[in-house]
């Protein structure tokens, strides 16, 4: 009997694009939960922080008084969930006067690399 063809995980790389600031609405939180779920299920997962999404990376965050889960704390669990490919758009940082010292994780990439990441992803979920 023929073995069923099994797709390699890397053939199905999912890209989650985080474009919104944390806390103002549920998007950032839901995006993060989606990324954690993808990772926990063993899907090859890339995360891109771009535009307002880069605010999610600023530390320290203390969301206690607004009664929300700490997004930065949750995001720092991504590698434990198997999501190690975390990318940050350089221009979005520059526009907001943020530098690598303001953010908590990830690798900063330029516009060309962002384009390549988008072009090579099998599915993109935008939050």
């Amino acid at each position: 009997m023929d073995k069923p063809a099994i797709e390699k995980p890397e053939d199905r790389a999912i890209l989650l694009v985080f474009r919104h600031a944390p806390y103002g609405n549920a998007l950032a939180r839901e995006g993060l939960e989606a990324a954690l779920a993808c990772g926990a299920m063993g899907a090859t997962t890339n995360v891109l922080y771009i535009n307002e999404g880069v605010w999610q990376l600023v530390e320290p965050q203390d969301s206690h008084a607004i009664d929300c889960k700490n997004q930065a704390a949750m995001a720092s669990a991504l590698p434990l969930y198997g999501v190690e490919a975390i990318w940050i758009d350089e221009d979005s940082l520059k526009q907001r006067n943020l530098t690598s010292t303001d953010i908590n994780a990830g690798k900063i990439i330029d516009r060309t690399q962002v384009q390549a990441l988008l072009a090579t992803s099998q599915a993109i979920l935008s939050f």
Binding site: V17, R19, L118, A119, S121, I124, S126
Partner: peptide, 8 residues
């Protein structure tokens, strides 16, 4: 398309 990026 290979994928869709929705900007919203």
């Amino acid at each position: 398309a290979s994928a869709i990026q929705s900007w919203y």
